[in-house]
């Protein structure tokens, strides 16, 4: 019996598997990597909350057998902030899309990073709005084709690494789904870090983004990642822009800074102390 069971069987919400993702979609690899990281670190699954917004990747929350919550579009980080501050004992991870985290939810992202809320944010960047059929979004490369850029994209994309670093994240890394080992190591590192960490995962969406951009299969897209990838650990985030020719990968930021929770709960402790002494 046990021979037939996948080692992550008990980490998946079985009644929701198989997942809705297309063949060749990288979202399942991100889920796989996340579960591997939790397992490797021996984290108590009862104390993990997996939060996601809306989009193809948003369904990841349902598949993860931790406590999980699927918010409205864009609000995952804000929701997670409430969870983490209300119960600091929980590990709170946000896994969501480029559109969810950086278009409609962009404001929440930069402010959570600025506050250094103790959250682990993983972005599945497929360069598009997969769920709604492949419109362009904040990470779509210049000139790329999508359903709403029929003449090519004329908007400049975000460099998410630069954005996260500038907003104050204490750990920032970028990998692709092909670099799943390093991705797992990064997620492990992020989960152990105090403060706001951000990992961008470049992931294939052959069904939509690939189809519009001459990469019809998951392997086509993964091979693009392989060809274009350059690992440049601790290189300048400002120079980590993604182009069709070059995808800079690596760890970019790994610093120490007290988390919002630590400062906030520290302040509360001081207030309590003062009240005990009665000199209010």
């Amino acid at each position: 019996m046990s021979e037939e069971l996948h080692p992550f069987e008990t980490f998946l919400r079985k009644e929701m598997i198989p997942h809705i993702w297309c063949d060749g979609c990288g979202n399942g690899i991100i889920l796989n990597s996340y579960l591997m990281a939790l397992k490797d670190l021996n984290i108590d699954f009862n104390k993990v909350v997996t939060v996601a917004g809306i989009g193809c990747i948003g369904r990841v929350s349902g598949y993860t057998k931790t406590d999980s919550y699927h918010t409205t579009h864009g609000r995952a980080v804000a929701f997670a902030t409430g969870v983490k501050l209300a119960n600091p004992e929980l590990k709170v991870a946000v896994i969501s899309g480029d559109g969810d985290l950086f278009a409609i939810g962009g404001n929440h992202f930069i402010h959570a990073a600025r506050r250094n809320v103790n959250l682990q944010v993983i972005c599945a960047n497929n360069f598009t709005y997969g769920m709604t059929g492949g419109q362009y979004g904040p990470t779509t490369p210049l000139d790329a084709w999508t359903s709403t850029t029929p003449y090519g994209n004329v908007e400049h994309p975000f460099n998410l690494i630069h954005l996260a670093a500038a907003s104050g994240a204490v750990y920032v890394a970028r990998w692709t789904t092909l670099h799943v080992r390093r991705l797992t190591e990064s997620i492990k590192k992020a989960l152990q870090k105090e403060g706001f960490s951000f990992i961008e995962v470049i992931t294939p969406c052959p069904e939509i983004y690939g189809r519009y951009n001459k990469m019809r299969t998951g392997i086509d897209m993964m091979n693009w990642f392989r060809k274009a990838s350059e690992i440049r650990n601790y290189s300048d985030p400002a120079k980590a822009e993604i182009t069709p020719e070059r995808i800079v990968l690596g760890e970019f930021v790994d610093i120490e800074k007290p988390s919002f929770g630590r400062l906030l709960h520290g302040m509360t402790a001081k207030v309590q102390e003062k009240m005990k002494r009665g000199n209010r």
Binding site: V49, V51, Y69, T71, T72, G74, R75, A78, F79, A80, T81, G82, V83, K84, L85, A86, N87, L90, N107, H108, H111
Partner: peptide
């Protein structure tokens, strides 16, 4: 940062 976030955080805290 805004009221969208405020309400989302309130729900998060309640679930916590």
């Amino acid at each position: 940062e805004d009221e969208l976030a405020s309400m989302a955080a309130v729900i998060g805290a309640s679930y916590a």
